[in-house]
């Protein structure tokens, strides 16, 4: 019996449901606190950002704020942010997927549980402590940098720097690779051994199995995980801010600089248009992610 059926049975024996103040009263009591809270602290701020982004300095309707997104230096920040998100997703998704595949296909149950705990912890690291950890390790005076120097390799004269685009990609991969392992593992786990056996029985070679069954089944999950990594790198603020002090041209840092008055533009509502642009990009990545995840859950059990 499903929940619904059970509860409709219960309603006939009304005493179990206590004082019948009415169904709508229960709905209100259960839903109102959540809706009111999110309304005030989430939806109202979000609506305000969208509304203001269409306002000129004089409070008239305008699209000028959005036109500015394509002007320098904002266009560069937008390009760099998109590039960083793409690079970070590529650099982290591939090793993450390989690792997830090795662990799921060859690891013991205990190993899989251990990895899922550790990956869960690492995927949630981020922000200021992560940035400082990498500064201490691979900054110009960092201890790993020093170790490489002892081994005869001066990575900073060789062109490496932590405070650049690729430095950020490296730092982000510290939480992105574990995130990939978490999101992609269920898909590999869902590939049933019987499917492989069935294909083999029907005469398929290993490569045929992967070409016609394995990869087509995993591809949607890989894409959706990739999109999640993209969105997470695109909207990351704290790590980049703490590490580069806002000097690298990224969209979130640009918004922060506008808010703090470090950068001045003619339009007071420009930061809001940039924020809406960020929301749009994140939604474009996250909505397909959520849809694919939901569909994949059907066969991943």
């Amino acid at each position: 019996m499903t929940n619904q059926e059970v509860s409709s049975l219960n309603r006939k024996g009304a005493s179990k449901w206590g004082t019948l103040t009415g169904r709508s009263a229960r709905v209100a009591v259960a839903l109102l606190p959540l809706l009111v809270f999110m309304g005030i602290f989430f939806f109202a701020p979000l609506t305000a950002v969208i509304w203001d982004s269409f306002q000129s300095n004089d409070g008239l309707f305008t699209l000028q704020n959005y036109a500015d997104v394509f002007k320098e230096p904002i266009a560069t920040a937008m390009r760099t942010s998109l590039g960083l998100a793409l690079a970070s997703a590529v650099v982290s998704a591939i090793p993450g997927a390989v690792l997830a595949f090795l662990i799921e296909s060859r690891g013991s149950d205990r190993l899989r549980q251990l990895i899922s705990s550790v990956a869960g912890v690492l995927a949630n690291t981020g922000g200021v402590p992560l940035a400082f950890m990498f500064v201490a390790a691979l900054g110009a005076a960092g201890s790993a940098t020093g170790l490489f120097k002892l081994l005869g390799l001066d990575i900073y004269t060789a062109g490496f720097s932590l405070y650049t685009f690729w430095g950020l990609v490296l730092v982000y991969s510290y939480f992105q690779i574990p995130l990939m392992v978490i999101v992609f593992s269920p898909a590999i786990h869902g590939l049933r051994r019987e499917w492989n056996e069935a294909a083999k029985t029907l005469g398929a070679t290993g490569s045929q199995f992967w070409r016609h069954i394995g990869v087509p089944l995993l591809f949607p999950s890989f894409t959706s995980a990739f999109l999640l990594l993209f969105a997470s790198a695109f909207s990351a603020y704290a790590t980049a801010r703490a590490m580069t002090n806002g000097t690298i041209a990224l969209l979130p840092l640009m918004i922060g600089n506008l808010l703090d008055g470090n950068v001045i533009f003619d339009e007071v509502n420009l930061a809001k248009a940039l924020a809406v642009a960020m929301v749009v990009v994140t939604l474009l990545a996250m909505v397909p992610y959520l849809i694919i995840q939901r569909r994949a859950e059907r066969w991943q059990r």
């Binding site: 602290f41 989430f42 109202a44 701020p45 979000l46 609506t47 305000a48 950002v49 969105a231 695109f234 909207s235 603020y237 979130p252 918004i255 922060g256 808010l259 930061a271 809001k272 924020a275 809406v276 960020m278 929301v279 994140t282 939604l283 996250m286 909505v287 959520l290």
Partner: peptide, 11 residues
């Protein structure tokens, strides 16, 4: 799905 930066401006 909403970047924290965007929420901060609204707040």
């Amino acid at each position: 799905v909403i970047p924290v930066v965007a929420l901060a401006i609204g707040a």
